[in-house]
Amino acid sequence: PPQTPIRAAMTSIQMLRGDLTSTGDQPSTTLATYFKQCTVDPTQDVRKRLEAHGQAFSQRFGQAVGPHCVVYGRERFSLGVRKYYQVMEAMLKSEEKRLSVQNFSKLLNDSTFHTSLLACALEVVMAAYGVSSFKNGGYNPGGGEAADRDVCFPWILDVFDLAAFDFYKVIESFIKADPTLSKNIIKHLETCENLIMERIAWRTGSPLFELLKQEHEGGAAEQVETPAS
């Protein structure tokens, strides 16, 4: 049968649901162990953060798509949470292998890391549902009717009040940690990445400016530029 946008979206959603059937909406035993091994156990903070983000997401989804669609917003959020846990576990396993450590207390108590990872997981879900186009008007953090009409990237950044620069940081590791992502989804994430690098990260208020300033000052004092810089 001919490929249509609806057929493509249905295939993509089926693949996502299939991939997430074995992943629960709670941390797996392995992930819970990583949490317990932390100097400061992040379990409760993770749970509370997800509750708050879930409410914000469903509410904003309803505002953007229509009040009768809040239930669909909750459904997408639920899939996003499963993907978030699944990818977090894969990332931690990979980091354990690379660094030979099991205590990821600092990373797992970093709220920005969790919010960025969740936002990326939700962007994957949204892309699977066929939201692959981008807003013409660009990023509008203040909201307003034109910006709230749809839920395309970078809508998710506004929902969670997340800096594009921080979202950018998780994209590559996310793709590496999730071998189930389809070519189209990877392409979508790459488009998000390019949009951030070329436009969004350079807007007023971006943390990138302060970081560049710090980097410049540090570099001048040391007179040495390391490859990592």
């Binding site: 980091e95 690379r98 600092k106 970093d110 940081k169 590559e172 590791s173 590496k176 990877i186 790459e190």
Partner: peptide
């Protein structure tokens, strides 16, 4: 299987990007 360009080196990971060692 896809043409995504990976930029992180083998010794870099999510921990470094969020300033954790």
């Amino acid at each position: 299987s896809h043409d995504y360009h990976f930029g992180l080196e083998d010794h870099e990971g999510i921990s470094e990007l969020f300033d954790c060692d």
